[in-house]
Amino acid sequence: MATVKFKYKGEEKEVDISKIKKVWRVGKMISFTWDEGGGKTGRGAVSEKDAPKELLQMLEKQ
């Protein structure tokens, strides 16, 4: 499965696309949330040019 790689608060992170729940556009950035388990929700953002095609497809479906 595809993953999204991004930096959050200076830390490199990687999230499996299948865990992503919500995707939206903020200017030229793609923001998203995912389920971290245990009732926690993670947040992240990646530039439109660095976003994997699967993430962009999720954005178009909404």
Results as ranks from 00 to 15, higher is better:
M1L: 15
M1S: 11
M1A: 06
M1T: 10
A2V: 13
A2E: 07
A2K: 09
A2H: 12
T3S: 05
T3L: 04
T3H: 03
T3Q: 03
T3G: 02
T3D: 01
V4M: 02
V4Q: 00
V4A: 01
V4W: 01
V4R: 00
V4H: 00
K5C: 02
K5E: 01
K5T: 03
K5D: 01
K5G: 01
F6L: 07
F6N: 01
F6Q: 01
F6M: 02
K7P: 14
K7W: 08
K7T: 12
K7H: 11
K7E: 07
Y8S: 03
Y8T: 03
Y8F: 04
Y8N: 03
Y8P: 01
K9T: 01
K9I: 02
K9G: 06
K9H: 15
K9S: 03
K9V: 02
G10Q: 02
G10R: 01
G10F: 02
E11S: 05
E11C: 15
E11K: 08
E11Y: 04
E11I: 12
E11F: 06
E12D: 10
E12R: 03
E12K: 03
E12W: 15
E12S: 07
E12Y: 11
K13H: 08
K13G: 02
K13N: 03
E14A: 05
E14T: 08
E14P: 00
E14K: 03
E14W: 04
E14F: 03
E14D: 05
V15D: 00
V15W: 00
D16F: 07
D16Q: 13
D16C: 08
D16Y: 07
D16N: 07
D16V: 13
D16K: 07
D16T: 06
I17A: 03
I17N: 01
I17D: 01
I17P: 02
I17G: 02
I17Q: 03
I17M: 06
S18P: 04
S18N: 12
S18R: 05
S18E: 08
S18G: 12
S18L: 11
S18I: 10
S18W: 07
S18F: 14
K19F: 13
K19H: 13
K19C: 14
I20V: 05
I20Q: 00
I20M: 10
K21N: 08
K21A: 14
K21H: 11
K21E: 13
K21Y: 12
K22H: 15
K22Y: 15
K22E: 14
K22V: 15
V23G: 04
V23T: 14
V23R: 01
V23Y: 08
V23W: 06
W24R: 04
W24C: 15
W24T: 07
W24N: 07
R25A: 09
R25E: 11
R25H: 09
R25N: 09
R25D: 05
R25L: 13
R25M: 15
V26F: 07
V26G: 07
V26P: 03
V26H: 07
G27F: 09
G27I: 06
G27K: 09
K28V: 11
K28H: 07
K28I: 11
K28C: 15
M29A: 13
M29G: 09
M29N: 12
M29W: 13
M29F: 08
M29K: 09
M29L: 12
I30K: 00
I30N: 00
I30Q: 00
I30L: 08
I30G: 00
S31G: 06
S31M: 06
S31H: 10
F32C: 06
F32N: 00
F32G: 01
F32A: 05
F32P: 00
F32K: 00
F32I: 07
F32L: 06
F32S: 01
T33W: 06
T33R: 12
T33Y: 12
T33P: 00
T33M: 08
T33I: 11
W34F: 08
W34K: 00
W34G: 00
W34C: 01
W34A: 01
W34H: 05
D35F: 06
D35Q: 12
D35R: 05
D35L: 07
E36C: 12
E36L: 04
E36F: 11
G37P: 08
G37N: 06
G37V: 08
G38P: 07
G38I: 07
G38Q: 11
G39L: 15
G39C: 15
G39E: 15
G39T: 07
G39D: 12
K40C: 15
K40M: 11
K40S: 12
K40F: 11
K40I: 09
K40A: 13
T41N: 12
T41S: 09
T41E: 15
T41D: 13
T41I: 14
G42N: 05
G42P: 12
G42H: 08
G42I: 08
G42A: 09
R43H: 13
R43M: 14
R43Q: 14
R43K: 13
R43Y: 08
R43F: 13
G44I: 06
G44N: 03
G44M: 05
G44L: 04
A45M: 11
V46D: 00
V46T: 06
V46A: 13
S47R: 11
S47H: 14
E48D: 14
E48N: 09
E48T: 04
E48P: 12
E48M: 05
K49I: 10
K49V: 13
K49L: 11
K49G: 06
K49M: 11
D50M: 08
D50A: 07
D50Q: 13
A51W: 10
A51S: 08
A51V: 07
A51H: 02
P52N: 04
P52R: 02
P52H: 04
P52M: 03
P52F: 02
P52V: 05
P52A: 05
P52W: 01
P52L: 04
P52K: 02
P52Q: 03
K53E: 12
K53V: 10
K53L: 13
E54V: 06
E54F: 04
E54I: 03
E54Y: 04
E54P: 04
E54D: 05
L55A: 01
L55S: 00
L55D: 00
L55P: 00
L55N: 00
L56F: 13
L56P: 02
L56T: 13
L56V: 12
L56C: 15
Q57R: 05
Q57K: 09
Q57E: 08
M58Y: 05
M58G: 06
M58N: 05
M58E: 11
L59F: 08
L59K: 03
L59H: 06
L59N: 04
L59C: 13
E60Q: 14
E60D: 06
E60P: 09
E60G: 13
K61D: 12
K61P: 09
K61L: 11
K61N: 10
Q62Y: 03
Q62I: 10
Q62F: 03
